[in-house]
Design a protein around this nucleic acid. Structure first.
Lengths: 340, 340
DNA sequence: CTGTTAGCGCCTTCAT
DNA sequence: ATGAAGGCGCTAACAG
């Protein structure tokens, strides 16, 4: 195969070979203007013969539309990402949009609006929690660049649409379940990372449940979980060694619930007899763990799908719901004391 | 905020405001030519004042380089994707490349080379197993467009670099372990999907282990697993109901191993006493399942990292290793009979 | 060091 | 229905 100066074959080459004007070829490609059949056939022939592929960058320059949406994500370890991505991809793909992904795992939350995802490069952007700093968001907001936030509500004064899961009610209900169905009274809450909104609302639900049963909130019963197995394990160990009494724990997510299991087993406590434990997220391992974990299922794929739809809608007509809460449901397994 | 005809602010606007030429602005942006400090300062001032963002599409048109690499993936459910993606992103991000992702989950393996990921739009492409048909691959190959295959070796006559995990030796060793350490002789093998190469090599390893111990291959002992929990479960049920005797099963992946557990438990068999079971992949739940699953760990993040490096290298100087096998290691837990 | 200018490949009025 | 021509925003010679 001779290489040589691989000259790009352009719309012009096609036009020449087909004996028509470039405008006609363009029209043929875009199917956006009447065109005689005879000419269409010639163009098609020329295109296949020349193995022509339109240069999308050129098209984008000319039309000033990118037809791609950006995805800014912090860290994509963990189980949440694949379904979320799947949801997003299913709607953007359907709509003919490409997906440009950028992770800020290496760099930490971006303080600058990433220029490769911003205006000129994408038509809009999906921003996950913790992936873009407030300053970065502000930049985008100022230029009213289409954005929708995922699992993060907009900072003050910016009204940016947001889609996330229903945290509070489900948390309240699962804690109530611990109290009502299983008679637990001393319930530990394991927090997520500081400033994480999911964690905040889950804690709020926890407190509400307590309040509704007239049980005073006890600060000793809340400890860091950080969405991290090891941190959660250590927290429970500390509680235990300090002799703090508890008969249940509501872990802010399943990951930390797994840490709770380890600490409890190491201390010779049984689940759920000695202490019931429940989590949040319904990760894949949660059904396999022993005993199977009672937890809250978040429909992450729906979150992705809805967020993508919102963004496309903004791009299309500028409108969107300012907040959409995707429903969650409790999955009752055995770690709370059910289904013995 | 008045909108009006939001005219894009261009390099030209910056040049005018700074009182310099567009070339200087371009040079300033790209830092690729000497420039006096005084002029640099003026340009910087103008840029921030105008809130200027370079139009990357225009730049790409002009340079004929996209600085993005495409990622073609079939389905991204399951645990393998996040670490793989993480590996890829870490090297492409480091190198300043964007990532354009396209899933073929909606459409099935693409028969056409996806034009939005091909030449003109990306500098190269990472192709996962089952995401692009042979015809599509051929198209790319003909134009010698940089590609590296992941978990899939190239079809005949095309020499496209490929990176995947070491399947055969690990499979042989894990089956040998079943025989030598735990005295198993009647070992079931649960296949993956037809034509899946990982499955093929794992089966090959299984057969080799048998052969080395002089145990004849028994076709009755191999059944479909399909990398699917339910399918695997059904296969084991069938074996059981047909009265076929076995004392171990090597599931082609952990997902199907989970199905094996269910079928075995339902039939009142114990693991590993009645039948030992081992898997492949070391998914997250495998450590949590009861009993913890002995399996083969694939370093998926490394696969991603290496594949990305290979691709970058092809793009850079046209060279690459035709095949790289990422090492795997056996993780001994309890389902094989170890660590009782 | 800095400015001028001709494209990159395509789209899109505006005529015809 | 079709063609001609002027950009889209930026880069890269080529002069100076």
């Amino acid at each position: 195969m001779t290489k040589g100066k691989k000259k790009n074959t352009t719309i012009r080459d096609v036009a020449k070979k087909a004996g028509v004007s470039v405008a006609s070829v363009s029209r043929y490609i875009n199917q956006n203007a009447p065109l005689s059949t005879s000419i269409s056939i010639k163009i098609q022939a020329a295109m296949t013969e020349l193995n022509f592929v339109p240069h999308i960058m050129a098209r984008r320059l000319a039309t000033n539309k990118t037809n791609t949406i950006g995805l800014l994500v912090a860290d994509l370890y963990g189980d949440f990402f694949p379904p979320m991505f799947h949801g997003i991809e299913s709607v953007t793909g359907e709509a003919g949009f490409d997906l440009l992904i950028s992770s800020s795992a290496r760099t930490g939350p971006r303080t600058e609006f990433p220029s490769s995802l911003g205006p000129h490069n994408t038509d809009g952007m999906l921003v996950f929690w913790d992936s873009l700093s407030e300053a970065g968001l502000h930049q985008a907001y100022e230029r009213d660049f289409p954005i929708v936030l995922i699992h993060q509500s907009p900072p003050d004064k910016m009204s940016i649409p947001c889609v996330t899961v229903e945290n509070k009610a489900a948390s309240r209900r699962i804690v109530e379940h611990l109290m009502e169905a299983h008679g637990r009274r001393r319930i530990v809450f394991l927090r997520g990372p500081d400033h994480n909104e999911d964690s905040y609302w889950r804690e709020t639900g926890y407190r509400q449940a307590l309040e509704m049963r007239g049980i005073p909130f006890d600060a000793e019963l809340v400890a860091p979980g950080e969405f991290d197995r090891a941190v959660a394990e250590q927290s429970i160990r500390n509680l235990l060694s300090r002799g703090i009494v508890f008969d249940a724990v509501f872990a802010c997510d399943d990951e930390s619930a797994a840490g709770v299991y380890s600490a409890l087993y190491a201390a010779g406590r049984t689940i759920p007899n000695d202490v019931a434990v429940v989590g949040f997220d319904d990760q894949r391992f949660s059904a396999y763990i022993n005993p199977p974990l009672t937890t809250v299922r978040a429909h992450t794929e729906d979150v992705g799908r809805i967020a993508a739809r919102q963004l496309l809608q903004i791009i299309h007509d500028g409108t969107a719901d300012s907040l959409t809460l995707v429903p969650t449901e409790i999955v009752f397994r055995q770690s709370c004391g059910c289904n013995p």
